[in-house]
Design a protein around this nucleic acid. Sequence first.
DNA 1: GTAGATTTCTGCAATAGATGCAAAAATGCA
DNA 2: TGCATTTTTGCATCTATTGCAGAAATCTAC
Lengths: 217, 217
Amino acid sequence: MRDMHHAEEPGLRERKKRRTRSALATAALRLFAERGYEETTIADIAAAADVSPRTFFSYFPSKEDVVFAEVDDRLDEVAERLARRVPGETPLETVRQSVVDVLETLVAEHGAYGTVQVRLILERPGLRARAMQRLTEIQDEIRARLHELCPDIGEIEAVAAAGIAVGGMQAVIVHCREQGYDPLSTRTALDRALAIVENGLGSIAALTAPAPPAGGR
Amino acid sequence: MRDMHHAEEPGLRERKKRRTRSALATAALRLFAERGYEETTIADIAAAADVSPRTFFSYFPSKEDVVFAEVDDRLDEVAERLARRVPGETPLETVRQSVVDVLETLVAEHGAYGTVQVRLILERPGLRARAMQRLTEIQDEIRARLHELCPDIGEIEAVAAAGIAVGGMQAVIVHCREQGYDPLSTRTALDRALAIVENGLGSIAALTAPAPPAGGR
DNA sequence: GTAGATTTCTGCAATAGATGCAAAAATGCA
DNA sequence: TGCATTTTTGCATCTATTGCAGAAATCTAC
């Protein structure tokens, strides 16, 4: 509250906090990668970061959260980008861009431990669930954005649109990661999914075919 | 209630197990409703069901799971229905019916504690995450069903379709519950969402309008 | 009905995540 | 430097969860 004269002066206290937070996150990810998630205790992480175990919890509310430390930072960036209005773009375009942004961010290999995070999230049900939760938050942001972009849209339309977009993209992303798709193939798959999101399941020829004959062709 | 000792004789052991499982679930839900989730310990539940605390874990892998005991049973039924082929129906119809089935099951007020379960799931992040997980499993079942119904469909198409359908429906359901929609309104909303799933976001007029009337409110 | 095999229940101990609290240490400021 | 504020820490505690081994209940064959 005090001095705001020189805009950016982190101050020792603040700088130290960030360093500690980062140290905890880095140590945690490294240990998770080395010994595995379950096999790493809070005590281990704290020790590796040179703080008391108790301190861990003043930086992260739970062991799971530390996995998302970096991811969250990325998502914050995306949220900003999402907020920037792009005039001349149709709302649909904006949503499309937002979703792709978010998901590509999640798929991208970030730092040295980016891969570990994704692997952990896909493997540990608890972490996977946590990730889902984040996605839900994002979904709601997109819904809100839709309302901003076109106040005319109905409540349900906005909710459904956000859910459809995020749900479809998420499914494809997870599928691609699990199947070991390379980035290019993933991108292609995402585009296909996006097309379905925009044109509806009705646009999938196979789905509108009369009835499934027992034979193939 | 009558006993025909022909083919199916549950046997005392089996009957007792079911009774215990049910007692645990019922006691748990009752206590959750009375004192709240966090405020109820495993010991409390076990005591109320007249078994040792240790026994709780031989029936449910975790405290969270007991909330889904009943829900899971319902979902199993739905899974069966989902498996039943309905000849002469278009795959799209089948998916549509499946999703609606699943979700209406979840929205329906089951037993005396049905409301409590839904409230808990919506409130406790942990439980909500757990619910998401179940939904993911269902999503995968739908995807598998799609492959069965039309072997011609592409991998990505199936994944995306399942994700879109479930994602869209889930978003609307949650929204309706949170906003306190009555069953009828919820049903209407679901239908609207379903239409969007089938026809795509492109079918929402407001979304394809040129650009947000810049500045205007 | 009883003995022996099988399954379930229970008590006990231990691990680990999470939280509240108050003293100790670090940092900011006059 | 000395006081105010913030962070860190140690400690106690609670609770979920798991492994283990003996006790109790149920089932099967005789």
